[in-house]
Design a binder for these strands. Sequence first.
DNA 1: GATGAATGAGCGTTCATTCAT
DNA 2: GATGAATGAACGCTCATTCAT
Lengths: 202, 202, 202, 202
Amino acid sequence: MTNGIKPAQQKRSLEKQKKIIIALETLLKEKDFSQISVAAIADKAGVAVGTVYRRFANKDAFLPILLERMKEKAKEQPVELSEVSTLEDAITQLVSIALMQLKEDRNLFRAIYLNVRLNPHLIADDWEEMEKQALSQVENLLRPFITEDKRVRLAPFIAYVAGTVFIEKILFNETAPYWVQKLDENDMATHIKTMLVALLHS
Amino acid sequence: MTNGIKPAQQKRSLEKQKKIIIALETLLKEKDFSQISVAAIADKAGVAVGTVYRRFANKDAFLPILLERMKEKAKEQPVELSEVSTLEDAITQLVSIALMQLKEDRNLFRAIYLNVRLNPHLIADDWEEMEKQALSQVENLLRPFITEDKRVRLAPFIAYVAGTVFIEKILFNETAPYWVQKLDENDMATHIKTMLVALLHS
Amino acid sequence: MTNGIKPAQQKRSLEKQKKIIIALETLLKEKDFSQISVAAIADKAGVAVGTVYRRFANKDAFLPILLERMKEKAKEQPVELSEVSTLEDAITQLVSIALMQLKEDRNLFRAIYLNVRLNPHLIADDWEEMEKQALSQVENLLRPFITEDKRVRLAPFIAYVAGTVFIEKILFNETAPYWVQKLDENDMATHIKTMLVALLHS
Amino acid sequence: MTNGIKPAQQKRSLEKQKKIIIALETLLKEKDFSQISVAAIADKAGVAVGTVYRRFANKDAFLPILLERMKEKAKEQPVELSEVSTLEDAITQLVSIALMQLKEDRNLFRAIYLNVRLNPHLIADDWEEMEKQALSQVENLLRPFITEDKRVRLAPFIAYVAGTVFIEKILFNETAPYWVQKLDENDMATHIKTMLVALLHS
DNA sequence: GATGAATGAGCGTTCATTCAT
DNA sequence: GATGAATGAACGCTCATTCAT
């Protein structure tokens, strides 16, 4: 309950809870979280407002849920790291995974991204955890190909770049200036790969 | 008046207008623009609500003002491009300028950054213009060192990276995961320089 | 919902809706609609402001309601046209009906009358319809006694006079000069009847 | 000062006062008094808000001024009663004068008419006086042609009808139903004359 | 458990009025 | 006297939250 989500014990409850979350996700495709009223969510979900509040302590409690949902989705379509034989392969995969995941569930990411920044406290812990996972994935990916020393030194930066560099392009392309909108995703991915490989070889 | 800002004619007015903007900037250090009420701004500025509305057509009129303020500040401490003799120097300067500008007026940037994404329409044109300037600066910087072809192809991407890669680290460091917080800005700058130079040489 | 009135589904809602309308009617006895705040209505009705807005889209939505209410009341005490055998009888009835209806629900009429003039667009259609009914009633009343030609020519004028001539006396008697206040309603009705009959015989 | 109008002693003041009133009259042609802000009046008059308040105690103080202005205008173009030789002539003149005066300065009348009803207390006395004049005019007009008894009995009613019956048609024709809009003013005048003459002969 | 009517604090905004300049 | 910047009460309206049914 610390996170504001009230455990559902019955099957019916769980269904409703899912309905509500899906309703929110649907609405997030149209507008920002702050512009979505609880009533609108209830409406879209086909339940009463009170029912929403039986599952969620308050409106803020949706954010952690959305994070949870993101993790869940990540698991549903797990990133299968095919065996890679070269550093270049590894980096290529890393970049393409980052790109794919962001494109998948763009709206979810946007909502979470903006709200983490608007209300950091709401989901601090979950967020932290997710990012930690990302880092260790990067470390695992690099391990076979570079020295421990280099890995420790560069993995955080590489994880940072991989997680950051596409945000503007993918999540906020509409707000981006014209020339950013013209940048091709795949070209970008290639450039980034080139750069990261060069960095690791430097 | 087209932008919703009403010209102040008297000395007293200008003072109050300044007070109001400073009040807003102060509040922006604590919370997001959407969470700041006009009454709160007036209160912080020590003026009445009506006084705020005498200077600003409505709450939205603050956003353009913030952008303006950003430009103004940028002019106050102009970026002096010392003459650069190598591509590496040029990139080094580019990266360090991006970093510096972002650190300077972090709060202003945060407010604008988030609001551009939350309400793109409000300051679309100004924003566009600023970004265009950034691109042409990058192009000028690269011109002496690389072929026209390469420049046209890579300048937008480089501008994009330079403008994007520090955002998380500088503007939202608190919300970033622990290992990102440990990343050293200067190390980051060095890495990025290395990467961009490598890309341009590739 | 097109008219801004939200349908009430529960018994409790209907009660409140009624309470709100009655509160408004009460307040209309004291002051004009434009001088009555939504908060005052809510207060008088013993409900919260939000409750008012749950039933009425906005303040303007009250005007159509008032018109509706007027029609409703008109139905409650329907005008029973006893069979009339002479033109004089018909006119007598017409005038006395106009007088009676205006006296009944004086306040309602006042509010509507003034607001139709202050904000014509708000209830234009309903109003139009009501007036049309009035005209056709007059035409029906006259049909047996005068030629088609005369009826077509004079009915609109007669309807106009019948609908207009009592307004000052009945709705705004307090604002009228002393000698108007001394005019006796029944005398007036007699005079008007005399005049209209004479006109029709001319 | 009881009426809220502050006496102007200097020529310059009087000019400004006149400017202000004319500005108000101009604005009244476009919108209702309640929708005209003091600032707008000052603006139109080319003076400062404070100047308006130096001449008028508050916004309500304009109403009496408007009444005054109406009287003034009435004097400027005095109704010249040509000598009448029959009762019919007298009534014809009465009706046509009422019609003319109302058409002249329609906007002024509208503003006053509505505001007298919205805020009766503001101009009660002046209004009363004007109406009394109207009655005595009617009495004078009728004196030569009918018995004292009849005159005393019918004059108030006739004055009432003459002053009332055109209001809807002339002042609020736009809000009136279609068939009222189609009524011809001159036809109306003729009908009314016919009716009043018949009444007096009855 | 579920419902949705009810709540009321809070928002952005207006404008009659005041008063320092 | 004239100015117009400053005031702040009041308005219409929204919406997260509660709770009687």
